[in-house]
């Protein structure tokens, strides 16, 4: 039963990867390419590329894409396939977080829990910084002989300066970035 297998494979992926979408890649590869032979390594690279260029959490995108593809391959409903895979990847998180969130108020009464969370704060800040740094590296130095992207760097500095002068919400900033990319493309300039 492919629907059930899809659900189960992605529930395993959701359950056994800690630390976000990219941590899932090796396990998804192992299940989809090696174990079930549903897709090729090349197709998987395409999936990752699409997941990166569509909105939403990476894990959801990749699960949905895989579900559609596998169901189509077996002559089944791609919609139902994607619901199974995406539901599978999300379900363990939802159950675990609901349990943790329910216990959280009581756990916070203990000094050790409060102290532990206090100690995690600087680490969280370091990790947010690391996320910005890594994304910056991939964007400005994409590799493959492309060289340093001066225009993207200038745009980043410009947008950052703008947020210091003007109160700009997160959504507005994202939309502005997209509009600037399209605007520059109108003049034949690519970032």
């Amino acid at each position: 039963m492919i629907y059930w297998t899809l659900f189960w494979v992605f529930a395993k992926v959701g359950l056994f990867t800690i630390g976000g979408g990219y941590a899932m890649i090796p396990l998804i590869q192992q299940e989809l390419i090696d174990r079930h032979a549903w897709i090729t390594a090349e197709q998987f690279t395409d999936f990752v590329g699409i997941a990166e260029s569509t909105p939403g959490p990476f894990a959801i995108n990749i699960a949905t894409f895989s579900g559609i593809h596998v169901a189509e391959q077996h002559g089944l409903s791609p919609l139902l396939g994607s619901v199974c895979s995406t539901g599978g990847v999300v379900l363990p998180s939802v159950v675990i977080i609901l349990l943790v969130a329910g216990a959280f108020r009581y756990a916070m009464r203990h000094w050790a829990i409060r102290a532990a969370l206090e100690g995690a704060k600087p680490v969280v800040v370091g990790l947010i910084g690391a996320a910005a740094w890594t994304l910056l590296g991939h964007t400005l130095l994409p590799g493959g002989g492309a060289g340093f992207r001066w225009l993207s760097a200038a745009l980043a500095v410009g947008l950052f300066a703008l947020t210091q002068w003007v109160r700009l919400g997160a959504v507005a900033l994202i939309l502005l970035g997209g509009a600037l990319g399209l605007g520059l493309r109108c003049f034949g300039v690519s970032l």
């Binding site: 590329g49 910084g129 980043a156 994202i174 690519s190």
Partner: peptide, 27 residues
């Protein structure tokens, strides 16, 4: 086709820069 569309790529490149600024601000 979606992946190779230059307009999609252009919008995404701008969005990516905005996302970096956003994360840096949160940092």
């Amino acid at each position: 086709q979606f992946r190779e569309n230059t307009w999609v790529a252009a919008a995404l490149a701008g969005i990516r820069v905005a996302a970096i600024v956003l994360i840096a601000r949160a940092f």
